[in-house]
Simulated scan of single mutants.
Amino acid sequence: MTRDFVHETRPGRVVFAAGARHRLAAETERLGLRRLIVISTPEQAELAGELAAPLRDRVAARHPHAAMHVPAEVAAAAVARARETGADGCVAVGGGSAIGLAKAIARETGLPIVALPTTYAGSEMTPIWGVSEDGRKTTGRDPKVLPATVLYDPELTVTLPPALTITSGVNALAHSAEALYAPDCSPVTALVAAESVRALAGALPRLRDSPSNPDARADALYGAWLAGAALGSTTMSLHHQLCHILGGTFDLPHAQTHTAVLPHVLAVNLPHVPAALAALRSALGAADPAGHLFHLARDLGAEMSLKILGLPEDGLTAVIDQALASPYANPAPVTEAALRRILDGALTGRPPA
């Protein structure tokens, strides 16, 4: 078989263990950091304070102001805070919102990031940044925003609410599904993505039945790590484009939106990519990956209707117009008919055709 591909491995250190959060001081010391700005959402300020306590006087500032989709004004305030305190590094505690805000700081200042993820968002493994302004979410790639060190501690995910556990996990699974048919997917990335799907799909039902199961939490976080690595090595496609538009324009919740949209995008794309279809069939143990993921998420309690998540019916045209104006690389032709099929199904929450 002829092989022609490029695979780029990005620098970064991963520490994965129950209790890995207790190694934060040692890991920042390893990087030579002396003045750290600690980033979190307001809701996780207390946790961030607890985790940063061993850093003692190396904490230059605590900034618990991260917000979903990284609003531009929030990003600007965080950059200003980092500069005025003379920070030489960021500690990000939380999911995509906190890590996204740390990336906004890193993009402007070059400060290294040490991330402690508490969800399965996967942002900590990618050089992708995003900022929202005036109803639009802009994303890009910059190696400066890739965290220098990630501390994966499954115990930090135990308090993740059951509903968010499921949607955050499916959000991670979306990264791997799209990586499998990305134009720059290498054989190594395909292996990582398929293993991620297997780990996540196997862990989520166990977490529904036993939310504090340590082995299931570890498996889900392992799968999320691999999903983020797969996403960071490939080009994003239609699924991520639609979710960025829905989040940036209508402020829909991030993980829930990914969960509702993914099965419908897969139903459109997978017939055009036999290798990705075969990989997902094997990883999920299902002949119809799109339908299987829809029913898995719904049966585990996820809301599958964008309308219930906050998308107005008259908003579909705005989403379609934006998607057609700046199309992402995608295996199936991105037409108005295909977009309407995807969005109509996700709006109502019905199974993919």
Rank of each mutant, 00 (worst) to 15 (best):
T126G: 04
E8I: 12
E46S: 15
T109M: 04
T2N: 07
L221S: 10
T85P: 01
V273F: 00
F294M: 06
A287G: 03
S305W: 03
P312V: 04
E29D: 15
R141E: 14
V38M: 12
L47T: 09
A338D: 09
A77H: 04
L284V: 07
G12H: 05
N269S: 15
R136H: 14
Y222D: 00
A332I: 02
A67G: 06
A80I: 02
R206I: 02
E108I: 01
P112M: 10
G223A: 06
V334E: 11
I320M: 14
G130N: 08
L151K: 09
P71D: 14
A115R: 12
P187C: 03
M236V: 13
S176L: 03
A26G: 13
Y120C: 04
R136L: 12
F5A: 14
E133Q: 15
D219C: 04
G232M: 07
R208E: 06
E336V: 06
P312A: 00
L51S: 09
D142M: 10
L51M: 10
G223C: 03
P289M: 08
A201E: 13
A329T: 06
H239S: 01
L173Y: 02
R62Q: 14
G301V: 00
H69G: 14
L270K: 01
D219G: 01
L36M: 07
A25R: 15
V265D: 06
L339W: 11
K103W: 10
A302Y: 07
L280K: 11
A177W: 03
L306P: 12
R30A: 14
V145W: 13
A332T: 05
A66I: 05
R341E: 09
G345W: 09
A76V: 03
R340D: 05
A203Y: 06
A67P: 08
L316W: 05
A115D: 10
I245D: 05
G291K: 10
V74R: 15
P64L: 13
C243D: 15
P54Q: 04
P154N: 11
A297Y: 02
